[in-house]
């Protein structure tokens, strides 16, 4: 494998994803959701919020989008990555070059993933600067690099699953629908299992909910950040239902890796064995 070709394909994938306005629209929406609450609070009056929370309000903007929007952006970037190339007939143009299928796959996978990293970084910069601008200097930011790293790692699950589905179905609209269905079903089933556990007290429902793909993704950044931040911040974690389910960071990391690697292996295996279709209309 030649790194130069993988890099060229990664750059190409970033350009391609940005050229799709739906990805840009969701990124813009995420930025709005990250920063608007700070400006809304400023409009309402910063004095309404106890001063002890002011240095830690960056936590709200960093963790609230984690559970939903970052995963959804990961999904939107990945779902069309392979499928749109088949639909537009551009896959055959690229693969008729001296590019191996592994280089093509890796280049596109990495390109989309780098874009996701950039979105996470942009989200962090906007959140911290908005919180600083409105509520003054922020504290506990030494945790932020770790949190961002873990958010990017957590994003692997739905990024890889959507990437896999895109390759398997090779239709972008179907890929978006199925990938979103996996994400929302996991969220909804998780809620149901938790409710059933609360009602019945039977541990199996709780255990089952921990193994759903959304559970480790939602939990890991919080599990790693919470012990490293003062107790006063715990209240902020409760905002917007931000709260880790009871599980270990190690189990969450293993589950994230397991889901992601499984999806990648399936996608690579399928891609390396199946014909490159002519333009699909």
């Amino acid at each position: 494998m030649r790194p130069g070709r993988i890099l060229a394909l990664s750059r190409y994938e970033i350009r391609r994803a940005v050229a799709r306005r739906k990805v840009l629209a969701v990124v813009a929406l995420t930025i709005l959701i990250d920063t608007a609450p700070y400006y809304a609070l400023a409009a309402a009056g910063t004095s309404l919020i106890p001063a002890t929370y002011h240095p830690f309000l960056w936590v709200v903007g960093i963790f609230i989008p984690q559970a939903f929007f970052l995963q959804f952006i990961a999904l939107l970037i990945a779902a069309g990555s392979m499928s749109e190339e088949y639909e537009q007939g551009t896959a055959e143009v690229l693969l008729s070059k001296p590019v191996t299928r592994r280089e093509y796959f890796l280049g596109k996978y990495l390109g989309g993933y780098i874009l996701l990293m950039l979105v996470v970084a942009l989200n962090a910069v906007l959140t911290v600067s908005s919180a600083t601008f409105i509520f003054g200097p922020q504290a506990g930011l030494q945790v932020l690099p770790l949190v961002l790293l873990v958010q990017v790692f957590s994003g692997l699950v739905f990024y890889s699953v959507a990437f896999m589905i895109g390759e398997l179905v090779r239709r972008s609209s179907l890929s978006y629908i199925l990938s979103s269905a996996v994400f929302f079903t996991s969220q909804i089933v998780g809620v149901y299992l938790t409710v059933i556990y609360d009602l019945t007290g039977q541990a199996m429902f709780k255990t089952a909910s921990l193994y759903l793909p959304t559970s480790p993704v939602d939990s890991l950044p919080l599990l790693l950040a919470e012990p490293r931040l003062p107790d006063t911040v715990q209240f902020l974690f409760k905002l917007g239902d931000v709260g880790a389910v009871e599980t270990s960071a190690v189990l969450s990391a293993v589950l994230i890796a397991l889901y992601s690697v499984s999806a990648i292996v399936i996608a690579v295996t399928y891609f390396s064995r199946v014909d490159i279709a002519k333009r699909i209309t």
């Binding site: 007939g89 551009t90 008729s96 001296p98």
Partner: peptide, 15 residues
């Protein structure tokens, strides 16, 4: 095999 081969597809779907 493709190192010295150029291909122009029918009704090209370029980026």
């Amino acid at each position: 095999a493709l190192a010295d081969v150029g291909y122009s597809p029918e009704l090209p779907n370029l980026q």
